[in-house]
Design a binder for these strands. Structure first.
Lengths: 185, 185
DNA sequence: AAATGTGTAAAATATTTATTTTATAGATTT
DNA sequence: AAATCTATAAAATAAATATTTTACACATTT
């Protein structure tokens, strides 16, 4: 009976769905997760056509998704002699994928926050120039200045946190299980 | 001139938007972030009506949003003698908010993953019962078993990571700026 | 240089998520 | 116990995201 390969295929698909599902926790679209899972389980880089075939989605969509994955640092195009089509490779280490998503999300936020802090600080300084009559307004302004300081400190913390992950320092304090190497490498 | 309070109000709104924006990085809807920001800047718990007024959105939407916030552990209803309406209070520590969102997101994922692992492991065990003729299928099955192990280890790591944050241990290694206390408390 | 294969912009459509409107149930006051 | 106030469920609508269709530019092969 050829029951077995069928069941096996099904388990594999469940696994891919689980990877996709996990990915959703990072706020990325389900399809990105699924594509990651498909390539991961394939154990070899794949072409847009293959992905299109595997997902049942259009090739254009695959192109869009792959671009996003590259932006997120969880995929890259690789060159192979004699192959004209793009070959998409994914990060195959779960931990590294976690870190890539975590850091690329927060780095974006950090850079936006820095710009905001600068802008708001300038605006508040500009207000300084005039003379205030309203006592409570002066206090409110002071409070806002305090608030910016708290916020800046908070984002400074996030920034250090990102570095803590990216450098791998995190693993010194929350270690991986020993002996677990990906894909048997 | 009453230029000043106006400008100040504007800065405050910008701050609220920034809080909302930051919140988006956790994958929560913009409105949740905005409501958090509004209550935070208000420095006092607020009613659904007040929130409705402040956001310009319907009271029903506020009710929905507050419920989500409570699920995420970043808000709670508080009782105040003589006040019939619900009063919504938010977590006013940025770091704690970060941790609450991080942990509640991942805890959900962890529990889903545990269920999945169990299920898939059972299915694979069930297949064991039969006799296999196909050599390559046997190998594939073995690989899948390996894969589940890697996955389980990975989620075990996430689980410990969540604990690392929730316990506050993280601050021993990525410390807050000293002397920064929220809202001057 | 025509013909075919490749990837991706731009526009159109479909699906999902956010929000409002309407309706209702449980308190509190009159 | 009618009238009013509260929050929220259920259904309807609007807005945002995901996906496909169409079109096109750039290579490579014929």
């Amino acid at each position: 009976m050829d029951e077995f390969p069928h069941q096996l295929e099904e388990s594999k698909e469940q696994f891919i769905e689980k990877i996709a599902d996990n990915m959703r926790t990072f706020g990325v679209s389900e399809t990105i997760g699924r594509v990651l899972g498909i390539i991961y389980m394939n154990r070899e880089p794949m072409t847009l056509d293959q992905l299109s075939e595997a997902t049942g989605m259009s090739k254009v969509r695959m192109s869009q998704v792959v671009r996003q994955m590259i932006e997120l640092n969880i995929a890259e195009k690789v060159f192979k002699k004699g192959v004209r089509k793009d070959l998409i490779k994914v990060e195959d280490d779960y931990y590294q994928t976690f870190i890539s998503l975590f850091t690329s999300n927060w780095r974006k936020a950090i850079s936006k926050s820095r710009a905001f802090e600068r802008k708001l600080r300038n605006e508040l300084n500009a207000m300084e120039a005039e003379e205030w009559q309203d006592e409570s307004a002066i206090q409110e302004k002071q409070e806002l200045i305090e608030e910016i300081k708290l916020w800046t400190d908070y984002y400074d913390w996030i920034s250090r946190l990102v570095e803590f992950f990216e450098s791998g320092e995190i693993f010194n304090h929350v270690p991986k299980k020993e002996g677990g190497n990906q894909h048997g490498k």
